[in-house]
Design a protein around this nucleic acid. Structure first.
Length: 336
DNA sequence: GTGGACG
DNA sequence: CGTCCACAACGCTGG
DNA sequence: CCAGCG
């Protein structure tokens, strides 16, 4: 690591960590004094990743260290947990209802279900204490919504999930490049990241102006155009059997109540990898997405900075992009 | 991993 | 007190 | 109608 990046890290720490990372002054009553970290962590020694010998304590330590990078992608969002109380090879379950015994200090929000028949109390992970509490429950990857509690029905994230299935990573890279090019061509700036599993994600930060349904339709239309150009290697076919060896461009995550794996979250996979943002010029066949176990992410941050920061810094107006897509679909270039 | 229900 | 159990959910598609 | 899918 060069001194330049060391300096960048220090500067970043100074602005992001401050004295009390638990406090978020613009939205909270001023604290009298920084509060001690009071979350009780249990079973630190339990092995979560047997192949690597990594424990729950290792995960907790990593989440604490990476929290300034991760929390901005969780803040104000309903979050679903996926819990692995006995590590990645044990039983797991999703958990979305925040029970009545949820401690004070872990925010929850009651939202109507999509059918409006009932409402559900959701967790919201706004700060380090909440993060550690939720991870102590056995959560490995947290799954935030693509919209915030401020306007739950209008997403501020647009996600394309490229799943290689049997297509291989080289084809996935080609599809990602093409999709990225097309999105930039209609004025959007997608952030590229590994899924932490096998695939790649392209994520766009949106002004929350459209419904999930509208955003989902837009995403599918874009995916359709990419498939038109790359028929041999890309598909939006939902049935796995009919995908063949093509990369699946999954746009179904742009739906209410669906979730989007955020940058910097650890995945419950053997390699203990993280969903890591990439520079577009890093995108290469030689970069398998299982790269970057959580043990290497801070080091990578020191070299590359926070490549996901744009997602939290600027929200894009998608209206011109929608118009452009409508034009190209209606433009009579062969699509019935 | 943990609280609540059951016996 | 020891055990057992729950811990999401929804529209779409293919069969 | 049910099962699989994400």
């Amino acid at each position: 690591m060069g001194s330049g990046s060391r300096f960048a890290l220090q500067k970043w720490r100074a602005t992001h960590l401050a004295d009390d990372p638990l406090d978020s002054p613009e939205r909270r009553a001023p604290a009298r004094a920084p509060r001690a970290e009071t979350v009780r962590i249990t079973n630190r020694e339990k092995v979560y990743w047997p192949a690597l010998g990594l424990t729950k304590g290792d995960l907790i330590d990593d989440d604490r260290a990476v929290s300034p990078l991760l929390l901005p992608h969780l803040r104000d969002r309903p979050v679903h947990l996926r819990r692995f109380p006995d590590g990645i090879e044990g039983k797991s379950f999703f958990h979305k209802h925040a029970p009545a015994h949820t401690p004070d200090g872990v925010r929850t929000v009651r939202l109507a279900r999509s059918d409006a028949e009932q409402s559900i109390e959701h967790y919201v992970c706004d700060d380090l204490r909440s993060l550690l509490y939720l991870v102590n429950l056995g959560s490995i990857d947290l799954h935030p919504w693509g919209s915030t509690v401020l306007s739950p029905e209008t997403p501020d994230r647009l996600i394309f999930n490229l799943d290689p299935v049997a297509a291989g990573f080289a084809a996935t890279v080609r599809v990602a490049r093409e999709l990225g090019k097309r999105l930039r061509g209609i004025g959007l700036q997608p952030v590229l990241k590994t899924s932490g599993s096998r695939g790649l994600h392209l994520v766009i930060s949106l002004q929350p102006s459209y419904s999930y349904e509208q955003i989902g339709m837009f995403a599918e239309a874009v995916a359709r155009l990419v498939v038109r150009d790359l028929k041999e290697i890309a598909t939006i076919e939902r049935s796995p059997a009919r995908r063949g060896n093509r990369v699946y461009i999954d746009t179904l995550q742009n739906r209410r109540g669906q979730t989007v794996v955020p940058p910097y979250v650890v995945r419950p996979v053997r390699a203990a990898s993280v969903s890591v943002p990439l520079d577009w010029d890093e995108l290469d066949v030689s970069l398998p997405p299982s790269s970057f176990p959580f043990t290497e992410v801070l080091e990578r941050f020191q070299l590359r900075g926070d490549l996901a920061a744009p997602l939290c810094e600027q929200a894009e107006d998608i209206a011109p992009a929608i118009e452009a897509i409508v034009r190209s679909l209606g433009g009579g270039d062969g699509t019935p």
